[in-house]
């Protein structure tokens, strides 16, 4: 039987651009270029490698986001994923992590899956908790933050490098996996891949398709409220000296003045 892999990806504002907040304190996605979150490329890459090892596998990339989010799907398809699902609905605007996990879980169930693969975090929200939330919702094992991952005989194994120890993990499929940027360099789409991606199917679902009520998501359905967002004042210009042979000593002098020595 075919191994059904769903890769969740996010379309994020470019981190090298000028990111800010809109008036309703949601992330402004209009005034800044977006792209497939870099950390999700590692998830797509591992999905492709796992699919290569399996006799028969199919990779679906899934995203939740506005119209432009299709660009993220297109990139993943051009890397080699087979098909894509775009969940888009005006009522999703302002959805928090808990709400997003509901949408993802419903879409993953509707798509059908044996293995869900996600990146370690998005490069904009950076919470890093969605894979755990999706696993909780689906009621399947969470095998997250893997720097190494393999799948064989219905079992996923991997290495999780934590703060105090490196752990070897193992779980039966179906399962939710997330991979770190240590899991292996993501491939660049080939010209052939980019051309082929244009013909691959992209399905669009809205909240009704997923049987989710509008008040379960969006700003109103959010279980957290942002009261304010303040631009951090630019750091005041510091002292910069050119080393003329005494640079280390001058620096030591500064550290003494600041009572670090």
């Amino acid at each position: 039987m075919s191994l059904r892999i769903v890769v969740t990806v996010k379309y994020v504002p470019d981190a090298t651009g000028d990111r800010h907040f809109a008036e309703d304190l949601t992330v402004d996605r209009d005034d800044v270029d977006g792209l497939l979150s870099e950390l999700d490329e590692y998830a797509v890459e591992q999905a492709l490698q796992i699919a290569d090892e399996a006799d028969d596998a199919e990779i679906t990339v899934l995203t939740v986001g506005p119209e432009d989010a299709k660009d993220a799907l297109r990139k993943a398809l051009s890397m080699g994923a087979d098909k894509a699902i775009h969940v888009e609905d005006d009522d999703l605007h302002g959805t928090d992590a808990i709400g997003t996990s509901l949408v993802l879980a419903k879409a993953i169930e509707k798509a059908g899956y044996d293995l869900v693969i996600s990146g370690m975090a998005s490069t904009d929200g950076t919470m890093g908790v969605l894979p755990a939330l999706v696993a909780e919702r689906l009621g399947v094992p969470q095998v997250t933050l893997l720097s190494e991952v393999s799948v064989a005989d219905g079992v996923v194994k991997g290495r999780r490098d934590g703060d105090t120890a490196s752990e070897q993990l193992e779980a039966s499929l179906p399962a939710v996996v997330s991979v770190t940027d240590q899991s292996g360099e993501a491939r660049y789409p080939s010209f052939k891949g980019i051309m082929a991606a244009k013909k691959k199917p992209v399905q669009s679902w809205d909240l009704e398709d997923l049987e989710i009520e509008a008040d379960e998501v969006g700003l109103d359905g959010s279980w957290t409220t942002v009261d304010s967002a303040t631009e951090r004042p630019a750091r005041t210009a510091g002292t910069i000296v050119k080393d003329e042979g005494e640079g280390g000593k001058q620096l030591a002098e500064f550290l003494v003045g600041q009572k670090f020595i």
């Binding site: 750091r235 510091g238 002292t239 910069i240 000296v241 050119k242 080393d243 042979g245 005494e246 640079g247 280390g248 000593k249 001058q250 620096l251 030591a252 500064f254 550290l255 600041q258 020595i261």
Partner: peptide, 24 residues
């Protein structure tokens, strides 16, 4: 990085860092 610093030294770290370490 110099846009962020309270104190910056423009120089070769192989000269500056050992000198700083010695001084400390």
């Amino acid at each position: 990085i110099f846009d962020l610093v309270d104190y910056g030294v423009v120089g070769d770290l192989f000269e500056v860092v050992p000198q700083l370490t010695e001084e400390i």
